[in-house]
């Protein structure tokens, strides 16, 4: 499986993270998104006329929507990430997968504006981002009342991976996460998963690592 990837893109990171969590090895093809705008060039436009990344290629299958990539990785290597199949849970997963687009447009837009100088109405992007965060916070609190730690189930699903990156990187767009305790707990739960991988701006949980063991004279 080949991923057309930009190291700073939260959407690309969703796919890298899902692959790591399900132990799928990806072939990474680095795309010069910034400063080169390679995703708008002829080679990648031929693969994905929308001009966006990530793009996932597996034989004849070419995917340009990250939710479809998460589904494909899970169906191949970790069906438990697709949920139990119960009607309500299945619907919640779909609900949050679609909701993730709002996070991309708002928090992602604010981040691109504040970090890579992309045009946009920063006030409006931040206001929409905060509205989406409040909705997610409420959703996670309700899940907590149901006794569930993750957004659609008691186990993590592709819906968590779809929402997590843009939320965790909200501070990059000038939106602090301090007001959202349920989101912060949920974020910790995801960062504490086995085989979790980091990206710039989303560090690993150092406290979960084993205590470093120093041999005498090693340092």
């Amino acid at each position: 499986m080949k991923l057309y990837d930009y190291v700073l893109s939260p959407s690309c990171y969703k796919v890298r993270l899902m692959a790591a969590l399900t132990r799928v090895k990806l072939e990474i093809r680095a795309v010069d998104f910034h400063p080169g705008a390679e995703h708008r060039g002829p080679e990648l436009m031929a693969l994905n006329p929308a001009g966006s990344i990530p793009i996932l290629e597996d034989g004849d299958l070419i995917l340009s929507e990250s939710a479809a990539m998460l589904t494909y990785l899970a169906a191949n290597a970790g069906p438990e990430w697709l949920g139990s199949g119960a009607p309500e849970e299945t619907a919640r997963i779909q609900q949050w997968l679609s909701f993730a687009h709002r996070l991309t447009a708002s928090l992602g837009g604010a981040r691109l504006h504040e970090m890579l100088l992309r045009p946009g109405d920063i006030g409006a992007l931040q206001a929409q981002g905060i509205a989406a965060l409040r909705e997610l916070e409420a959703g996670l609190v309700e899940q907590g009342l149901r006794g569930m730690r993750f957004i659609a189930s008691d186990q993590p699903t592709i819906a968590d991976i779809a929402c997590f990156p843009y939320v965790a990187l909200a501070p990059d767009g000038g939106i602090p996460l301090a007001p959202y305790p349920a989101i912060r707990l949920w974020s910790r739960a995801i960062r504490g998963l086995d085989n979790f991988i980091e990206m710039p701006g989303i560090p690993r949980l150092h406290e979960l690592k084993p205590e470093p063991h120093v041999e005498p004279g090693e340092v």
């Binding site: 680095a30 390679e38 501070p171 990059d172 710039p200 701006g201």
Partner: peptide, 22 residues
Amino acid sequence: TPMTDLIHFQQTIFLQDRSILE
């Protein structure tokens, strides 16, 4: 190393610093 990988390596490093700086 392809040019894009060199760029990504340095952007990775700098973006790890950015949130600390802010």
